[in-house]
Structures are given as structure tokens and as C-alpha cells.
Design a protein around this nucleic acid. Sequence first.
DNA 1: GAGCGAATTTAGCCATGACTAAATCCAATG
DNA 2: CATTGGATTTAGTCATGGCTAAATTCGCTC
Lengths: 223, 223
Amino acid sequence: MLSEAVQDYLKSIYKLSHASQAGEMVTTSLIAERMQVSAASATNMIKKLAELRLLDHTPYQGVELTPTGVKMALEIVRHHRLLELYLRQSLGYDWDQVDAEADRLEHAISEDFEDRIDRALGFPTVGAHGEPIPSKEGDIAVHNYRRLADMAEGERCWIRQVSDRDPALLRYLDEHGLILGTEVEIRERAPFRGPLRIAIGVDREHHLGLEAAEQIYVEIAAA
Amino acid sequence: MLSEAVQDYLKSIYKLSHASQAGEMVTTSLIAERMQVSAASATNMIKKLAELRLLDHTPYQGVELTPTGVKMALEIVRHHRLLELYLRQSLGYDWDQVDAEADRLEHAISEDFEDRIDRALGFPTVGAHGEPIPSKEGDIAVHNYRRLADMAEGERCWIRQVSDRDPALLRYLDEHGLILGTEVEIRERAPFRGPLRIAIGVDREHHLGLEAAEQIYVEIAAA
DNA sequence: GAGCGAATTTAGCCATGACTAAATCCAATG
DNA sequence: CATTGGATTTAGTCATGGCTAAATTCGCTC
Ligand SMILES: [Mn+2]
Ligand SMILES: [Mn+2]
Ligand SMILES: [Mn+2]
Ligand SMILES: [Mn+2]
């Protein structure tokens, strides 16, 4: 069994590798920042993970998960996303509260527990914030969503996924009706990285900062 | 926050102190055996817990939880028993499977999670094996049950609580209908610590070993 | 009251995963 | 191509919670 710390590093590295460009290596400092530890601590753990053959480490360059490492990471991601959804659906959590709880539970549940909540949820493929849920076999769907922040004036789209990193942002989005499935139209893009004026659903309008819009992933509505 | 190890020691010491005679101290070797560690490791932890004012340690004699220690122990016990019940009621676990899962989850859930499953279960006062569930304030009911093993021939009783220590025993009891609420009559006590011949419910009879009967707690039916 | 044996504690060690401070590397700049 | 500053690694330390082996204590028996 992998320790809780190892599991959390793998999960973070997996996510970082998918946030960066394909082929790019994940750097020590990125890992350290994400894990909230010093760079020296990150280096320590990287050496251990390399020893365990969970990643390849090119000193001074960065790391890349091995197939085994990816598999282990996806196992944790699956636990996390199933748990988030379960907390939301079965225990009435708000979507900004589920991440913290799942971050701890993901290491504590058994495979049996995983299977039971999977069944209770009807074998979902998408999580509480729209992220794909890896299958038990380690496959994960690739969604080609675009960032709301990158949409052009006049375009319409549906919100399909939202970053779960910041609870405050999630509450803010919730208050303004910016939830999964909501239709959004870009009315106006202010210059100098200014806010987007958007139509939310049928009759709401909002000026949304670019910072927030970068955390929202959308599917473009057929023109 | 107390570490997982500290929490588990407190829980074990609490249970051991209630299994022994009132006023008796809990010994190092008992703790070591229950925690599956060496006696030296137990001594180490005892010194740390004494330092934390969670118990009083009389060297070479034993330990006794302080009021704070009891409070902390009951907090974990509450988590454990609520979780066991929730796993059983909401996720369909068998009663021999819940203990292991709860042993890990009990350290990972938040107070919010605790409150939510408490509500979902209708604020139960009795756990999956009949144990009293401590209140959020740290009160716990005292049940004056007797061991089935100590009943006399001819006496009738209801099964009210069962030890959750041994999953195999729980499966065995389940197979023979020896579950919570079942009425049992002692037909015959074999000599030399031999088995009890008992009537289970209306029309079942069984020869139950004393070892098993010692793990079953009953309420005597009015004669 | 001496001695014995079991329980307990002490001493010393190890793995894990943090940290700070110092050394080292490397890419960019002049 | 030498310099330099930021990123990375190394070195050394600490806390936690295990372990074994050795020393110590205590209750019991002779
Ligand atoms: Mn985590
Ligand atoms: Mn799993
Ligand atoms: Mn536990
Ligand atoms: Mn609690």
C-alpha cells in the first residue's frame, strides 16, 4: 500500500502534468507549490517516487509519471471524484465543500466502499465539478472543453466543468447561476484583460472577471 | 488535532478500561496486545499521552484516562459507531464488514460529516452491534446487560449487544439467527464449560460454545 | 528476606516526511 | 564566453511512531 503522502503527490503530479502542455515535464517547484511544502521536501519525495518506479526523474528538468504512476494516480482521482459526487448527492453537501472532505476520505476508503458508492450513484462518468471520473480499469475520458475566458464575443456555450480548487470561487459562481449545464453567451469582452459581459441562462447578465472565467470550461453551442 | 495513532490508542484504552473492573488500571501489556504493537511501543505512546494530559500514568502499574482523555476517546467512538451504522443502513454492508471500514474512516471525517450521517440515521443512540453511541456532548448510556454465557438454565432473554471484534464470529451468529433483538432461551448448560443448548426465536435450537456466548450481551426477559 | 520470573521501562535504532541552510546547476544576459 | 540569479539538490535536523535488546522493577514463592 502507498502512503497517504505518496498518494497525494501522485495525484498532484498527475493533475499538473495535464494542466501543462503535452510532453512538458512537471517541475519540482510546481509540485512543491501545489503540495504546500518546501522545494527540498518535494525533491525528497520525487526521489522516493522514482525509486518506486512511479515516475521518471530527470534531475534539474522535472518528472513524468510512469504508466504505473498514472494508474496509481487515477485510482486516487477516482476515489476523490466518486466521493465528491456521493457527498453532494447523498449527504447534501454544497459543491464548494466536497473537495476538502474528499481529500481526506480518498485515502481511507476500501475498494468495496468505492464499488458501493459507484453503484449507489449509478456508475457516473462525470464528477461534481464536471471532471471525468476514471474507470476502475484506469481509463479516463478526454473532454475537449474550452475556457470561458477564451471565447469570442457573440459565442454561446454550456458550462461543462469548473475548477474545484477555490471554494470561494465555487460559492460565487453558484450565487450567479454559473453551474454545470448553464447556457452562457459572451456579450462583450472588455479590453486590457477586463471582465466579460455575459448572459447567463435566459434573463441574467453579469460582468465576470477573467480570472474566474479561466476556471470555467465550456462546450460551444452549435452556431 | 490528535494524530491517527493517538486517537486509536485512546479508543483502545477507553474500551479496555470499560472491559476491566471499575477502578482497575489498564496495563501496558493489555494496550500493546490490543494495538498489535510491542510493549516498548506502548510505553512510548503512554508517555506521550501522559505528556498531553490525556491519561495518568503510574509507572509499572498502569494508566487511567483523564476526563479530557475520555472525552477525546468518546469522540472517536462516536465517529466509529455512527459510521458503522451508516455503512450498514445506507450502503448495505454486512455487520461483520463495518468495523474494519469504520476503523479507517473514523479519523478522516469532519464534524460536518458526523452531523450529516447522524441526521441521515435519525440521531441513533445504539450502534450496529448494539453498543451505545456517545452523544456529541460526550455522554454515553450505560447498559446493564448480562453475558449470555452467564445465564442460567431456563432463563429467557433478548440479544441486545454483540462484540464487534471478530468478523468470523459475527458471520457465524448471523447464520444462526443470533442477531440483535432475537429472543433466546437457555435449554441446557453442559458441564465443564461446555456448550449451551439454546432456543433461538420460535423454532430453532443450537448448541452454542461458551466462547461465543461470552461475546453476546442480553437483556433478561421478565419471568 | 532472597531470589525468581514476568511485566515494564530504557536505550538505541529505523523509516517516513517535514524543515532550513548551503551548495550546485543551468539558462539567460551582457 | 563569463556572470549571475533562480531553480534544484544536498546536507543536516526534527517529530512521529514503530522495532529489538537490555536493564529494571515488582509481586510472589521459598
Ligand atoms: Mn488527499
Ligand atoms: Mn479504488
Ligand atoms: Mn482507527
Ligand atoms: Mn466528531
